[in-house]
Amino acid sequence: MKVVRNKYGSRRVQKLFGISDDVDAFFYAAILRRFFHIITDNYASYVAIRAMVVFDQVKGHALYDHVLHHALDIYIASNQYGCIALNKFITDADDPFYRNLLLEVVGRNAPCLSNDPSENFVVQHVLKLHDLLCRLNVAVRLRGHCVDLSFKKYGSYIVEKLLEAEESMAVVVLEFLECDGDRLMRLARNEFGNFVVFKAIRVTQEMSRVDPFWGLVHKLMPFLHLLRRSRGINIVNILLIKNNILQTSWSRLFKLPS
């Protein structure tokens, strides 16, 4: 541990992997014995990541089993360096079975992961992978939590990512439409939430989701005067444009012949 926790020691140990079966077996046993301490250390974690790539399939699968065990029971993701290592494991997993298991673990635990300063980066990471099943799993698990998350710095990043795909966007927008108008207004004025609400309005328009788009517009229009004096000024601009378009359309529709 003293060697692999050192920047240069970590690099030198990694270079020894793959030289012979005996050497790999020695390090494999050492990694498993101190797995949690290795995976949650800045430099030592790269030893485990490298071992996953170099070791044979049997040893690699055993390491994945340890990742799954600790991800479930101790949450590697709650540690700053463990979070980085877990993201790397998910990205580099060459076995679809273990990759899907890791994605399922993250999706199932999305609510608690999303509220942690370190763990939320794991949720953000899996959403960037554009895995439809994982995205839907995260969205379903976060249903009912999207408004609360949007008030928080890191939580708002996750909700914004959910808004980037039509399948998960519907979950977020529906929750916004179902919450009290006063609460949505406070979210639109919030330093983090205003970006989420603005994005919800923009993506529903871009995806041609007419009913959700106008639902958000009409829900926020009564609070226009409050939004003007807040961080929600970006939302005000789009509301005014759409309101003017709507009024013009109605005036033309009911214009009497001269």
Rank of each mutant, 00 (worst) to 15 (best):
T204Q: 13
Q205C: 08
L246V: 05
A29G: 11
A139S: 13
F223K: 11
K199G: 01
L220Q: 12
Y28R: 05
V173M: 04
I235S: 09
R228D: 14
Y64Q: 02
I76Y: 05
E119F: 02
M169C: 15
D94A: 08
Y98W: 10
L227E: 10
L63Q: 06
R183Y: 07
V106I: 14
P96V: 01
L129I: 11
V4Q: 08
L174W: 02
V210T: 11
H145S: 15
S78R: 06
K219D: 01
D92L: 05
M52S: 11
S156G: 03
H61V: 08
F176P: 13
L227V: 12
L132I: 12
I76C: 03
L149C: 01
V217L: 10
A44T: 00
K88M: 02
G181H: 09
L16I: 09
D148W: 05
N109D: 13
S118V: 02
D65T: 02
V196N: 09
A85L: 03
D94M: 08
G60Y: 01
F55I: 04
W250D: 05
E104K: 07
T248H: 14
L103E: 04
V140E: 15
R50V: 01
F151S: 03
S249R: 05
D148K: 13
S249W: 10
V47Y: 01
L184A: 07
A188D: 10
N190H: 12
A170F: 00
R202D: 07
G181T: 11
F151D: 05
Q247W: 02
Q57N: 06
D56G: 11
D182K: 12
K152R: 13
E104N: 08
R143A: 14
F26W: 05
D41S: 05
R202Q: 12
G181A: 13
S150Q: 13
I201W: 04
R183C: 11
M185Y: 11
R135K: 10
